[in-house]
């Protein structure tokens, strides 16, 4: 659905996007992550044909993107962080205007469906200047879906929204993806991306640091398995004994709670249980603690920053 090949954008010699290669497949909910100023919005603006790349190619819906290729743009729906509405219009007038621009058949019926879906039907005759941030965002979703696009591009869709609105928007994205729409979400709110996305790309300073499924990214970054164990009694005395086990890479003890880092070459849980039993401890609960996307993101970006610092040092 989206492919970028060595995409680069320079502003007065500064590389905002640097040889970026992305691949978004049909049906994905694809998370595009990066800290503020990483080059996410610049990349999206290039994908939408709003700014020309300095070099590289963009393929959108199977076709190479050319300036003013409106045939492709008609198959894409976009929601940006800021909604830029015509404040003097009502929601119904606004959607009718965009419906006419996109030549949507049975536009009034479609508007009714979408305003019902986003919960704005009751406010359809209110001027958009009186809409809250959350209402504006929902209306932007309705506008983006109006022409039944194959691809949805969302730039920070839940930034500055309250928790209820965030959940409504998230449900809407998932619902549209179930209907077969491909969704490209750019965000710096990692918890949201983690809940929504099957595949992510992480960029920093315009460079692609990782692009893979969520699980693969976490697996790649994890050199230990972390186990959280609840024991039958206080385990302070165990700390030094655990370090003698060859498969244990580290441990922390807090009362009867134990966190153990194990080697990843095979499953050592049975060995550990046996060891604890022999030492007179009964395991009440044991669970594997997974790396969160936030931890993965921080690890990857920090690795990248150190690498860049070394490169700059050499230069």
């Amino acid at each position: 659905m989206i492919q970028t090949v060595n995409l680069t954008k320079e502003f007065n010699g500064f590389k905002a996007v640097d040889n970026l290669n992305l691949q978004v497949e049909k049906g994905d909910i694809y998370g595009f992550l990066g800290p503020n100023g990483a080059g996410k919005t610049t990349t999206i603006m290039m994908i939408l044909g709003l700014i020309p790349p300095t070099s590289g190619k963009i393929f959108l819906l199977g076709e190479e993107l050319r300036p003013n290729n409106v045939a492709i743009k008609r198959r894409v729906g976009v929601v940006s962080e800021n909604q830029y509405l015509y404040k003097e219009m009502t929601a119904e007038e606004y959607l009718t205007f965009f419906g006419e621009l996109y030549e949507v058949p049975n536009v009034q019926k479609r508007i009714e469906e979408l305003l019902e879906a986003v919960g704005l039907w009751g406010d359809r005759n209110k001027k958009l200047g009186a809409y809250s941030k959350g209402m504006q965002q929902k209306l932007a979703f309705a506008r983006a879906l109006l022409h039944d696009p194959e691809l949805l591009i969302l730039d920070e869709p839940v930034a500055n929204l309250d928790p209820t609105s965030i959940k409504q928007i998230r449900d809407l994205i998932e619902e549209e993806n179930r209907k077969g729409r491909t969704v490209f979400v750019s965000s710096h709110i990692l918890s949201e991306v983690e809940r929504l996305c099957k595949k992510v790309a992480i960029i920093n300073r315009g460079r692609l640091l990782a692009e893979d499924t969520m699980d693969n990214i976490k697996r790649r970054l994890t050199d230990t398995v972390r186990l959280e164990i609840e024991l039958s009694q206080n385990a302070e005395s165990l700390s030094s004994e655990l370090s003698t086990l060859p498969f244990v890479k580290g441990s922390t003890v807090d009362g009867n709670k134990l966190e153990v880092h194990l080697q990843t070459d095979r499953d050592y849980r049975l060995d550990l249980s046996r060891f604890l039993y022999e030492k007179g401890f009964l395991v009440l609960a044991m669970k594997t603690k997974e790396m969160s996307l936030e931890e993965a993101f921080i690890t990857i970006t920090q690795q990248n920053i150190s690498l860049l610092a070394r490169e700059e040092g050499k230069a």
């Binding site: 939408l48 709003l50 003013n68 409106v70 743009k73 008609r74 894409v76 976009v78 940006s80 800021n82 909604q83 830029y84 509405l85 015509y86 965009f98 621009l101 996109y102 506008r143 022409h147």
Partner: peptide, 16 residues
């Protein structure tokens, strides 16, 4: 200035 131009250009609107 209002940003509405950007939204129009997401779709079928061209400078012409």
């Amino acid at each position: 200035e209002q940003g509405t131009l950007e939204v129009l250009f997401y779709g079928p609107v061209t400078p012409g």
